[in-house]
């Protein structure tokens, strides 16, 4: 069995340490020197790009039932700052999936003829109502739900991030604590009259941890989770706001919106509780000994 002689042990350890430092040591550039990532779009920035104090539209909206509804994500940026795409921004595929979820929840209502998912490519940053008029003519929608978003992601390093000085540590230890805050806002507009009919928010908060090498991937996953959870809340709030809007229209039609019906009507039939109660009353006169 060979043993290193004591006089060779120290130089050998020194050489080994130096080799380790050269080959496995490193400094991970975390988050490109930033610890916050922000992506957002704005309904106001899209509809009123050059107006600081937009005036309310005159008159009342006229809603001709059943409505043809569009649903779209507002493009981010404005005319002056068009084309900005954040590195971890929500993709068109993700937007389509989220909008489909919203559309599925509102299908089948008698006052909605159909719901069209409007791709963001149909909307210009800062396009305003002129752009919406184009969408209206192209896709035949009367009302559009514009969905804007604001998502902020924070990442902070904790004590475990000291392990990032070694490659193994950067793979194994969750030295980053991530926090993703998402706000979605849907504003439903009658395109012809430029009136905001109602609006609803949806928020979510996603927290998680990650190792240095998985940081970007985990943040993308958290971003998608944030949008998904925010959409769930948004759908619930949209339903509530829609019902409240319908009640307002019923109670004060001259103050909220005029309702008209397109040529051709929606019809059905039903047997309500009163009919069943009348049947039950009738059954009281039935002779019990002749029941079949």
């Amino acid at each position: 069995m060979n043993h290193l002689k004591p006089r060779l042990l120290f130089p050998a350890l020194l050489a080994l340490g130096g080799a380790l430092l050269l080959t496995t040591g490193g400094c991970f550039s975390l988050w490109d020197g930033q610890n916050q990532h922000h992506q957002a779009s704005s309904v106001v920035g899209y509809l009123y790009p050059n107006q600081t104090d937009p005036l309310p539209p005159p008159g009342l909206p006229v809603l001709r039932l059943p409505l043809r509804v569009g649903v779209a994500f507002v493009p981010s940026g404005n005319q002056r700052n068009s084309g900005y795409i954040p590195p971890n921004g929500i993709t068109e595929a993700q937007k389509a999936v989220l909008l489909q979820r919203v559309a599925d929840e509102f299908k089948g209502r008698d006052y909605i003829e159909h719901i069209e998912i409007v791709p963001t490519s149909y909307l210009r940053p800062g396009g305003g109502f002129t752009n919406l008029d184009q969408v209206r003519n192209l896709l035949g929608v009367d009302v559009i739900a514009l969905v804007a978003y604001d998502q902020v992601q924070f990442t902070d390093e904790n004590l475990l991030s000291l392990s990032y000085w070694t490659i193994v540590g950067a793979y194994l230890f969750h030295g980053n604590k991530n926090d993703t805050q998402t706000l979605l806002e849907a504003a439903v507009y009658d395109i012809a009259s430029r009136h905001l009919l109602f609006r609803a928010p949806g928020t979510s908060s996603v927290q998680g941890g990650s190792a240095a090498v998985n940081l970007a991937e985990n943040l993308r996953t958290d971003s998608a989770k944030g949008f998904d959870a925010g959409t769930t809340v948004l759908i619930g709030n949209l339903k509530t706001q829609l019902e409240e809007f319908r009640e307002r229209v019923k109670q004060s039609p001259d103050a909220v919106a005029h309702i008209e019906h397109k040529p051709g009507y929606t019809g059905s039939g039903a047997f309500g509780g009163a009919f069943l109660a009348a049947l039950a009353l009738l059954s009281l006169v039935r002779k019990p000994w002749r029941r079949t």
């Binding site: 008698d110 309702i259 929606t266 019809g267 309500g272």
Partner: peptide
């Protein structure tokens, strides 16, 4: 005898 949820039915 019935009441429809929708006003336009």
């Amino acid at each position: 005898f019935a009441h429809f949820a929708g006003t336009d039915i």
